[in-house]
Design a protein around this nucleic acid. Structure first.
Lengths: 254, 254
DNA sequence: AACATGTGTGCGATTATCGCACAAAAAAAG
DNA sequence: CTTTTTTTGTGCGATAATCGCACACATGTT
């Protein structure tokens, strides 16, 4: 297939419509047509059309002034989890893993410089990680993200780090490219990753790679926990084997 | 605002594009352009354009022949959970509830004749319910769905049942309209709902309504459990108070 | 009451979309 | 290995949908 795509092959209405959906987030849970037009590059008339379209389709609701998303948009996200074998296979194993170790676990893939969390099994604790299916974090701040990046070849890794443009999310975030690279290289050697307080203070992640039966890298399994729960070394000693065990079992099913 | 929408106000590319995403599911996790064209009403050329567009945007991937969804589509679904206060408020309470009762809990809203599960807290059990955020079930088979329908007025309820066109999913599914109505009416009186084996054999649901601080109905809280775990009456005795307690606490926050 | 801001709508110009038709390629059949 | 069949890539003109403007109207602000 030709991967050069000409403008005439792109359906613009779709692109903009999806942008509209993504424009709604934590910071602006509801918007008027003019606010939306301002936020993404659209004339007010166009913004209006897109909002009305989404409303007619049931993806949006409105009080006549403000517009907001309805639960129906979740159906889109579920389209992936329903269609892909990956989450269906992994989810139950994650839950079993969570039960065994008592901490929240998840499965993430790397998409460019972002770590996308595909499945999650939250431990029933008061302190919740805020990670849910679909969450995207800058990969250089995430254990899974760094671990997955560690499988890039040397040149690609350099470019990746540059593209990531690391900035400090906490006072501990590693932003110096050389240091970050060293950390990532160590993960490659160790075949597991651990980070602490890189995105959220007090949060520790431990991660191992997940491969399919053909030994292709498909993503990373992680445990998220409070640093205060135990020391880093005992966390590694306890959790890495459990993670690897799960990864090994999954490898046969994938 | 005028709620009559003229065709000229509808962005067709968006409508069709979303249809394309939804066309991928369990049964057809990957499709070629011609398969897709056949499945939804699209010429092959159009199907091709939509697939290429979604691929260029990162929502799809392809080996040159087959197309499939990427985890990026989950970002769309997350747009809702991130933008709406509802799931963020409810999720932690659900987790606490799951911990207290040891069973999977969830929060659902009614959308026409479908129950949409918005938040879920799965108990760490081997038997998983298969319900995840975004799942849609025929409301007449779901405890939460029936309970929510019970708040429709009499005429609307009749129309709702007719529209639902109940059919048997298990040998226990209530499909007779009059019986279904009686069941639903009882839920309204009792202010909680219980169903068993209506959608999946051996699965029991117990549900209570959730209201906001202005006493508006926003959805239903449910517990899903195996019927074999305990008798129906002891489940009611144990779980309805817990559910109501959670609903009461949430009512203050909504 | 005057003003400012945001919203509904008709319309012509523009352009993106459509589906056809045919070429090329890939599979399947022989 | 050749032929046949099916699927895929692409150029193009007709068509129809999108666009943004302009103006009227509504809302709420000073």
């Amino acid at each position: 297939m030709n991967d050069e795509i000409k403008p005439s092959d792109l359906v613009d209405g779709l692109r903009k419509g999806l942008e509209v959906i993504l424009a709604f987030d934590d910071a602006s849970p509801q918007m008027t047509q003019s606010e939306l037009a301002l936020r993404i590059d659209l004339s007010r008339a166009a913004a209006r059309r897109y909002l009305l379209t989404l409303t007619a389709l049931g993806y949006m609701a409105s009080d006549g002034k403000n517009f907001w998303l309805t639960p129906k948009v979740m159906q889109l996200g579920r389209s992936f989890t329903a269609s892909s074998r990956l989450p269906r296979t992994i989810q139950p194993e994650l839950q079993a893993l969570t039960e065994r170790c008592g901490e929240s676990t998840n499965f993430a893939v790397l998409e460019d410089t972002e770590a996308v969390y595909v499945c999650c099994a939250n431990a029933n604790r008061l302190l919740s990680t805020g990670i849910e299916p679909g969450t995207r974090l800058p990969a250089y701040t995430s254990t899974a993200g760094r671990l997955l990046a560690s499988f890039l070849d040397d040149h690609a890794l350099d470019r990746w780090i540059k593209k990531s443009a690391p900035r400090a999310h906490t006072t501990f975030t590693v932003t110096e490219p050389a240091t970050l690279k060293r950390e990532i290289m160590r993960m490659r050697k160790q075949a597991y990753g651990i980070t602490e307080s890189q995105f959220e203070p007090g949060l520790r992640g431990i991660s191992v790679p997940l491969r399919d039966s053909a030994n292709n890298l498909v993503g990373a399994l992680s445990v998220s926990m409070a640093v205060s729960a135990m020391t880093a070394s005992s966390a590694i000693k306890k959790l890495v084997p459990l993670l690897n065990e799960t990864a090994a079992r999954l490898a046969q099913k994938l």
